[in-house]
């Protein structure tokens, strides 16, 4: 009975088309990035990237490289947007089509229903992120094969396949945490607004505004406190030397943002009258 709301939410989420459409879009992106990399690989001038004359023997692009590369193109805009659309509908969408009143007349505490929705949102954020990584590894393996992970970080660092795989796994674990904080933000918007598109749009808008503010020198002192400054925490795992302290700090900010947005969602969802 306690887990029934979670089962119900997962059933609803994983039986709707938009969920699977999201996975298809992610897969298509991975395919396009791999295809592009495949062509680019022939012309890749490593010497320009490291800023000096250099000779590289062997493959620079491998499955691990693709898994790393797709993070930069997918986790900045695409995946947060998909999360905003899917999670933004979890409450606002139900309010819009009337099912929220059907749901909340069941003998279940509202906060349990909200917890189920949050866990479902996190499950989507996690599954789409993990799917991104696994599909990149699989397609990268097919096209480029297995091998070292080459990192361009001012200089050039080559990690052996085992270490590279560990870095990719840790990077994706951090990406899951980042995307879960986006899901919590989207759920808060979903609790506040009656329209799922408004919830999704405002989630993306908040991320864009934070991103712009973070780029402006005038707001340099604010930047460390912005969610967007920590969403790319996974990129720390692809430096020559991992700054564990910076990772922990960013993880702390992500947790704080998640806690704050969840608390607001709890207050709104628990107290708000269902009038539509």
């Amino acid at each position: 009975m306690r887990l029934a709301p979670l089962r119900a939410e997962l059933t609803k989420l994983y039986r709707q088309r938009i969920t699977y459409a999201s996975f298809v879009v992610v897969l298509a992106l991975v395919g396009l990035v791999t295809w592009g990399s495949h062509h680019e690989a022939r012309h890749l001038d490593v010497s320009q990237r490291v800023g000096s004359e250099f000779v590289v023997a062997g493959r620079t692009i491998t499955a691990l490289f693709v898994a790393r590369a797709v993070m930069e193109v997918a986790l900045v805009v695409l995946v947060p947007m998909l999360i905003a659309v899917v999670v933004g509908a979890l409450i606002a969408g139900e309010r819009q089509n009337g099912t929220l009143r059907t749901l909340l007349t069941r003998p279940q505490p509202r906060l349990r229903v909200l917890a189920a929705k949050l866990l479902t949102g996190w499950s989507f954020a996690a599954s789409v992120t993990v799917f991104l990584g696994l599909s990149a590894l699989a397609i990268g393996q097919l096209v480029f094969g297995w091998g070292d992970l080459v990192i361009f970080d001012g200089g050039l660092t080559v990690l052996d396949p085992h270490t590279g795989l560990m870095r990719v796994a840790e990077g994706y674990a951090l990406a899951v945490a980042s995307m879960c904080s986006v899901a919590a933000l989207a759920l808060m918007m979903s609790a506040i607004f009656d329209n799922s598109m408004a919830a999704a749009g405002l989630t993306v808008a908040v991320l864009i505004v934070m991103g712009i503010v973070g780029q402006m020198p005038y707001f340099e002192h604010v930047k460390p406190y912005l969610l967007t400054a920590h969403l790319r925490v996974y990129s720390e795992m692809f430096a020559a030397t991992v700054d564990r302290a910076a990772v922990l700090t960013s993880a702390g900010y992500l947790a704080a943002y998640t806690a704050l947005t969840t608390a607001v969602a709890m207050i709104v969802f628990d107290r708000r009258d269902v009038t539509c």
Partner: peptide, 20 residues
């Protein structure tokens, strides 16, 4: 109001599970 993408059986089953 029901979940339009689910069948009547799935809707009933899902909602019933929330009551016990």
């Amino acid at each position: 109001a029901f979940y339009a993408h689910l069948s009547a059986w799935q809707n009933l089953s899902l909602l019933a599970s929330l009551s016990g």
